[in-house]
Amino acid sequence: MSTTPRARVGRPRATAGSTQLAPRDEILDAAAALFVENGFAATTTRAIAERIGIRQASLYYHFAGKDDILVELLERTVRPSVEFAKTLREDPSLASAAALHTLAVRDVETLAAAPHNIGTLYLLPEANRDRFDGFRASRRELRDAYGAFAMDAATDALRATWTLAELGAAIIHLVEIVIPLRRDGEMIDAVRIADACLRLCGLDDAAIAAATGR
């Protein structure tokens, strides 16, 4: 008696792999490229799957939809710096000015390494939806970490005229200048951007040299 083979249930498998990335990271990389090239609204999950030669069902094994993909891409530009800020706060031997400078350098490097300059999508209207609350909360946490370090490092005159939130917002925007610099093909110098963050706090060249050990 002949039997019919039973269909195997499980993860849909890719038919072709174009990079050495893990499947989830390959999807993220392809999506980042398409979001930046064509815009988020114009990019479909089918287009993302076709970009790397997999079935659309394989993409849905990893992500529920393109909103989830964008959330993870944006979170990856922020969470490493948030976690690094926590590490810096736990070091009692590190002065606030040095911590601020170190965090700014790391943050610039993270943004400079983000796939396809995904930071350009920070201002997407879609990023204001509830689905992106986690990303916005992470970015506020990073802003407040900058603000706390900056208020401790700032001159008395500056502390008298700025709030922690204002100073944190100014510094995070200064750090994120790396995004348009990268878009325009300009040179990115993480140390110079971090130096500018300390100058924003009112520190002069001598104080910056002392804070950075130069």
Rank of each mutant, 00 (worst) to 15 (best):
M1A: 13
T3Q: 13
T3D: 13
T4L: 12
A7G: 07
G10R: 00
A14N: 06
T19W: 06
P23D: 00
P23Y: 01
E26C: 05
A32R: 10
L34T: 09
A41I: 12
A42G: 06
T43K: 05
A49R: 07
A49Q: 02
R51H: 11
I52L: 06
I52P: 04
A57G: 10
S58D: 02
L59W: 04
Y61K: 01
H62Y: 15
F63W: 04
F63T: 03
G65N: 11
K66N: 02
I69T: 03
L70H: 02
R76V: 01
R76Y: 02
T77D: 04
P80A: 00
S81N: 02
V82S: 01
F84M: 11
K86D: 13
T87V: 09
E90L: 08
D91L: 10
A99F: 00
L100V: 06
L100K: 00
E109K: 07
A114F: 08
Y122T: 01
L123M: 15
P125W: 08
E126S: 11
A127F: 07
N128E: 15
R129H: 15
D130P: 12
D130W: 13
F132H: 00
G134H: 07
R136N: 12
R136K: 13
R136Q: 13
R136V: 08
S138L: 15
D144C: 06
D144I: 12
D144E: 15
D152W: 09
D152E: 14
T155I: 03
D156N: 11
T161R: 14
G168R: 02
A169N: 13
A170Q: 13
H173V: 15
H173Q: 15
L174R: 06
V175E: 03
E176D: 12
I179S: 04
I179Q: 04
I179C: 02
L181N: 09
R182L: 07
D184A: 14
E186N: 12
M187S: 11
A190H: 06
A194T: 08
A196P: 04
C197D: 10
C197I: 07
C201S: 05
D204I: 06
D204G: 09
A207W: 01
A207R: 13
A209Y: 09
